[in-house]
Computed example of a mutant assay.
Amino acid sequence: MERQTKRRRKTLNSSLQQQIIASSIQTRSKTRSLVIDFYFPDECWEFVFKFLINYGNSDGNNRLYLRCLSFVSKQFLSITNRLRFSLNISNSTRPLLPRLFQRFTNLTSLNLTHFRGDLDALLAEISCFPLNLTSLDLSQKPTIPANGLRAFSQNITTLTSLTCSFTKSINYSDLFLMVDCFPNLQMLDLRYSYDVSEEAVVHVLRTCCNIRHLNLTRCSRVKLRTLNFKVLKLEVLNLSFTRVDDEALNVISKSCSGLLQLLLFYCSDVTDKGVNHVVENCTQLREIDLGGCDKVHANVVASMVHSRTSLRKIGAPPGFDLSDTEKLFLHHGCYVS
């Protein structure tokens, strides 16, 4: 009896094990089937990741999602690598550049603001890699790395945006070098570079025929009075905190009649006369900032809205009261702040 009981138990255990194994195999099969059914090609994942990064992204923090997503799988790592278009280079990341450039194959923008070292040598090193860069940021440097830019431009000819803001010393020859190295520039940012001269900026505008965006904030030596030729493609001009005056605005508005955005924040020498030159000659103007222009009368806002219908945003001068005219301006499709 005992032997028969043991045999029955073994048979039952064996049968139970077979059922468990069969059930496990069936579950795995269903799981694989589901995985196959829910497989997304890389292009779809790229779309999803771009949505996560860009949706509601006002401060750039959403890009941190890339780091989290890259931990999920090798497939996600490969996709997030392709979605990385900018790189900040510091002293700690420089030894890793070969690996980083090999990993992020779609880089278009480099920021060297936080690098403290031999900038000429770094730029020469970067030029040895097959990169299709369009943007370079060299802000907060004591001088312009002339030798490095020459080496950089020999192999990287795709650059269209150059930022050299807060540079302690930029002389005439530095700007000549920039346009010689990068004749296809569309954006040049020289804000808070106090040594920039009028003659050098005029040369930039004459030579770089494709320039669309020029930031001269706090470039106190520049007025652009000597601009005596057409700058057809310039769309955005920032002259905030400069000594530009009515005469200069008359010249600028005739030479740069295609301006879409003109920023004159705290330009204390500008009056109604200069503003009227701009409104009359810049027929496509969409935005103008007159904040802090204490010589511009508040009444000029109403005349601007009515005479230049392309305007969509106005930074009003001091003393302007929006309460009485808000509905009227909004009716014309212009936001006044």
Rank of each mutant, 00 (worst) to 15 (best):
R3D: 14
R8I: 06
N13W: 14
S14W: 01
Q17W: 04
Q18K: 13
Q18T: 11
Q19Y: 03
I20D: 02
I20L: 09
T27A: 15
K30P: 00
I36F: 03
F40Q: 13
D42K: 08
C44G: 00
W45F: 10
F47N: 07
F49V: 12
F51A: 09
N54Q: 06
D59V: 01
G60Y: 03
L64G: 05
L66T: 12
R67D: 14
C68E: 09
S70C: 00
Q75D: 00
T80Y: 07
R82P: 02
L83T: 02
L83H: 01
L83D: 01
R84H: 08
I89S: 04
S90G: 14
S92D: 13
L97I: 05
P98S: 09
R99V: 07
R99F: 11
R99E: 13
R103K: 12
F104V: 03
L107I: 06
S109M: 08
S109L: 02
S109C: 10
L110V: 05
L110R: 06
F115C: 03
E125P: 13
I126V: 06
S127V: 11
C128M: 04
F129Y: 15
L131W: 02
L133I: 11
Q140I: 09
P145G: 10
R150M: 06
N155S: 15
I156Q: 10
L159P: 04
T160K: 08
L162W: 11
L162F: 11
C164Y: 00
F166K: 11
I170N: 01
S173L: 14
F176W: 02
L177H: 07
D180L: 08
C181Q: 03
L185N: 07
L185H: 03
M187D: 04
L188D: 03
V196G: 05
V196D: 05
E198C: 08
E198W: 08
V202E: 15
H203P: 00
H203D: 10
H203M: 06
V204R: 03
T207W: 05
T207R: 13
R218K: 12
C219I: 04
R221S: 14
V222E: 08
V222T: 06
T226Y: 11
T226S: 15
L234K: 00
E235V: 00
F241R: 06
T242F: 07
R243N: 15
D245I: 02
I252Q: 09
K254L: 09
S255V: 01
C256H: 10
G258I: 10
Q261N: 12
F265Q: 12
Y266N: 14
C267S: 14
V270C: 02
T271E: 08
G274H: 05
H277Q: 02
V278R: 07
V278L: 08
V279Y: 01
E280N: 14
Q284L: 10
I288P: 05
I288W: 07
L290R: 03
L290W: 11
G292L: 06
H297V: 15
A302L: 08
S303F: 01
S303C: 01
M304P: 09
M304G: 04
M304C: 14
H306L: 13
T309Y: 01
T309Q: 09
T309D: 03
L311G: 07
G315Y: 10
P318D: 02
L322T: 00
S323G: 09
S323E: 14
D324E: 07
H331M: 07
H332K: 15
H332L: 08
V336M: 06
V336S: 05
